[in-house]
Design a protein around this nucleic acid. Structure first.
Lengths: 165, 165
DNA sequence: CTTGATAAGTTCCGTAATGCAACTCATATC
DNA sequence: GATATGAGTTGCATTACGGAACTTATCAAG
């Protein structure tokens, strides 16, 4: 019975982090995006303890992010794959990786691998937050509102963020 | 001296999760996006233990994601704010929240709050991964390549992902 | 200028999670 | 049959977390 991190009752980010915020979970998902399928490969790729890996994989399967199936060709092997729910984490993984590339790269360091668009063979564009009509938004361009309000009510509720800081 | 989760030496996602994968860190960042500034407010909002909160805030400041300054008006108060590095997590936070909205909402459940575009008062569009020329990409439309290769070399390196599964 | 309240942490300690190595168990290979 | 492989378990030492009480600095009131 794993300890749950927060009170994920109201906020969807909290609820998402309840699963993905467990140590190693996001990196296991990343590995599956990059084609890792098998227990021992995850273990070697991440250097994670085997018991913890077993716990994490079970949870990710339980949450419907990964599927688990025994290989037909070799019934010793178990294959973990992303479900659609798991694949929908694509923007999360890519935006994390792009944030890392912008802010965590040591001076002069070049990445060993890149993810490219298969069609053009080009690097991906930056993942951006947009309005429903396509304008790129910064945090300052957004505000939180009670979800039940109408648009008119909405604009009055929360004072604009100030850029001070 | 906090324990570091993985070997964050090569992969930028691993390095990002070295900070943000610590329990609570992402939720602290989320709170700052939504205007939380003060120690006790984080504590009440998250229900986190005070010692752990102190550790997390110190680490986030140390990593340059949050800034810490003593209030001019009341020198008892300390203000934590997002730095530019922290604000650049916007797409990560929003894509996480959208993933949660798609996959973690209980039946019939409506969110209490929504983030809207300030100008139009409308909900945000979905955060998407795009090619450099703007096409929306799924995981199947991408592949990993050694970063030093040319475009021509690149396309031969890794066999296309199969949609089987 | 003492008293009381507030804000931001710290300290202490019991409980829970992690890391590590060795072990099991089923299946495949020689 | 003997050995190897893959996917986990088990047991135990180490580390991190949760909770409550405590400290320190500052402010506001009388």
């Amino acid at each position: 019975m794993p300890k749950r991190v927060s009170a994920p009752d109201y906020c969807l980010i909290a609820r998402a982090m309840d699963v993905l915020g467990e140590q190693w979970s996001m990196l296991i998902v990343r590995d599956t995006f990059f084609g890792v399928r098998h227990f021992d490969d995850f273990q070697k790729s991440l250097g994670i303890a085997r018991n913890v890996l077993a716990t994490r994989l079970a949870r990710l399967v339980d949450e419907g992010i990964l599927s688990r199936r025994v290989s037909e060709q070799d019934r010793r092997k178990v294959e973990y794959r992303l479900t659609q729910k798991g694949r929908d984490l694509f923007p999360v993984i890519i935006s994390l990786s792009q944030w890392g590339a912008r802010h965590l790269r040591r001076e002069g360091e070049l990445p060993a691998f890149a993810l490219v668009d298969r069609e053009a063979g080009q690097p991906l564009g930056p993942v951006e937050v947009r309005s429903s009509d396509g304008r790129v938004l910064t945090p300052f361009d957004t505000q939180i509102v009670p979800a039940s309000g109408t648009t008119e009510e909405i604009r009055a509720v929360i004072p604009p963020l100030r850029k001070a800081g």
